[in-house]
Nucleic acid binder design. Sequence first.
DNA 1: GACGTGAGCCTTACGTCGTAAGGTAGGACC
DNA 2: GGTCCTACCTTACGACGTAAGGCTCACGTC
Lengths: 251, 251
Amino acid sequence: MTSPRTAGTAPRSVLTRARVLESAVALADREGLGALTMRSLARELGIEAMSLYHHVANKEDLLDGVVDVVAAEIQDAVAQLDPLSDGAPRSAWKPAMRRQILTARAVLLRHPWASTVLETRKNFSLPVIRYYDSLIGLMRRGGFSYDLVHHAMHALGSRALGFSQELFEPDGATAGSAAGGGTKEGADDAATAMLRQMAEQVPHMVEMMAAVSHEDGTGSTLGWCDDQTEFEFGLDIILDGLDRMAERERR
Amino acid sequence: MTSPRTAGTAPRSVLTRARVLESAVALADREGLGALTMRSLARELGIEAMSLYHHVANKEDLLDGVVDVVAAEIQDAVAQLDPLSDGAPRSAWKPAMRRQILTARAVLLRHPWASTVLETRKNFSLPVIRYYDSLIGLMRRGGFSYDLVHHAMHALGSRALGFSQELFEPDGATAGSAAGGGTKEGADDAATAMLRQMAEQVPHMVEMMAAVSHEDGTGSTLGWCDDQTEFEFGLDIILDGLDRMAERERR
DNA sequence: GACGTGAGCCTTACGTCGTAAGGTAGGACC
DNA sequence: GGTCCTACCTTACGACGTAAGGCTCACGTC
């Protein structure tokens, strides 16, 4: 009478580490990283919090596992790309790497919380390292010395995985949680007012925002940055710089 | 009898927001960001946790304030640098910006926890914006259009403030908290063993680490990255790229 | 069939956190 | 001298991660 899940020799439970991690990713996608607690994850799975500890060692291990899931997703996406043909010229490394990084980025954009978790990991899991390995391989195909490859990986930093921490808040420089009413327009007005108020303090900043936001026709400060464009801009600077260095190295 | 702090018309208390924030910075410096809780900060100041709420609105506000303190420290350090002379050539923007960013970095290295806090702030405080403003000013002196300046700020990202998230763990790729005994040598051995074990899985990575670590004479995988060198390498790539773009823009 | 074993799940409880609510003492001002 | 404000305190609540231990089955072995 106590709800046998299946008949016959079925395993007592269908809960596995993989299913726990999948649920954790889904929960974070749906309600944000803050909502990913042992209790809420357990509720999601219809069990008690402590039962999770049979499948993950502790919360750190859970987060490690969740990173693995996302990294595997990245690997899958990258694997679908056309591989570099054997006869490709040396210069082919650059567009190939660009494509691979933007593919990784596309996956991370589906899991906006993932970059935060990624940054806090101490030991990188095999899936992540494997992704790096493929980038290193591309650069070697481009004729990089290992030394240059090493510097390159540091120079790319998190950009190699498809994200970069933006120090401007991308969607709206809301001026505190004060007036404005929470609407986007309200936040915009508040931000504009705040900027005007500190025009003497930060003249260049104010002028830059005015110049750039007028460019697209809207007088709004909101939505004046296109994340994707800015990411590609920064990425291309680095790739171009590396390309030049590899050329110099070859001579 | 209840310990009058001073005689006469002295203020009832000597505790101010500034002193609270100073203490918070000191505590984080000494014991890490994790140790910065309302209770421990209060203990540090000889008061109760709830009394802190008379000087900061809540913990977020405390962290905002702590960022302000660090940003002010950066501003102070930057202010000590020789300003760009009026007759300096356009090209002077680059070394000036490099110097300013490395100065900011030196301050952040004294507060290793600060970059983590910085990344989680939503609204930038005046001190931080002022620092950015000075960078924008330098690029304008270099002849940048506002549009290019804007892209440049995104491209620099956190590097503008002197840090970049390293996705390799800088000090030792400790292979989990398993065997090794906690000593540096132990961790090194464990990392090396782990790498050897996955040599077929990530051949390029293994070879790169071997090549680079042999270069400095030691056969160790530990300490094979010099943070400062790598930071400057990445910074220079971006600055050089921007310089080239500014030149192209001028023609 | 009886019986130990261990995996999977549960219950209870502890110590931590941020902070809401409300109390109290003493200086400032009318 | 009454009133108020400010800076402090006490108590308490509902999160959180997780240590410790108990129950219930499916299984292997005899």
